[in-house]
Amino acid sequence: MTQPPRKRPEPVQVVKSRRDAALRALVSGVPYIQFLGIRFDRRGDELTAELPFDEKLIGNPLIPALHGGVTAAFLEVTAIIELSWTLLWEDMEAGRIDPATLDPMHLPRLPKTIDFTVDYLRSGLPRDGYARARVNRSGRRYASVHVEAWQDNRSRLLAQGTGHFLMPPTGPATERDD
C-alpha cells in the first residue's frame, strides 16, 4: 500500500471534528436509533453505546424491567454501528471519504444482519445501559461481531450477543483487502 507524502499533522480539533461528523452522520440518519434514544460516545476509534433509561423501554411494569426486545435491539444497533464505523474509519483516515460530504442519504451502504443471537444474563434494571462491540472477523463478504451490554457494573453483564453480517458491496471508495 502506498502512503501519500507526509504532511504536517493536522490540528487535533480538525481531526476530532471530522471523526465526530462521520459518527454523527452514521448514527443520526437511522430513525430507529433515535426512537430508542441510543447515543454513541467516542474515544479515538473506540465507541461506547449509551441507552438512557426511558419509560417506553419497559417490558415488565411490575418489576420494572427493560423489555427483552429492547436489550436485543440495543446489542444489534451497537454491533451494526461498530462494524459500519470500522469500515468508515479506514476510508476516512485514508482520505477516501470526506465526512463533510456525508449525510444520512449519502453514507456508504450499511452491513445487513444475517443472524443475531442474544444471551440474556440479568434482567434489565430501569437505569441507563451501555454496550461495546468487537469485530472478531471482517472479511470481504461476511463479518462476525460480538457485543456486550451492562448497566451499573462493567463486569456484571446485562446481556451479550453475537451477530453475522453481510458486508455491503465493495465499490471503488470502499476497496479493502480481505
Binding site: 437511522v30 430513525p31 430507529y32 426486545g69 436485543a72 435491539a73 444489534e76 442519504m105
Partner: peptide, 17 residues
Amino acid sequence: LVGDPRTGVIHGGAVSA
C-alpha cells in the same frame, strides 16, 4: 422504526422486539 433511511426498511432490532 426504520433502520435504513434509503430503503425505508424496518430495523432488525424492532423485528427482534
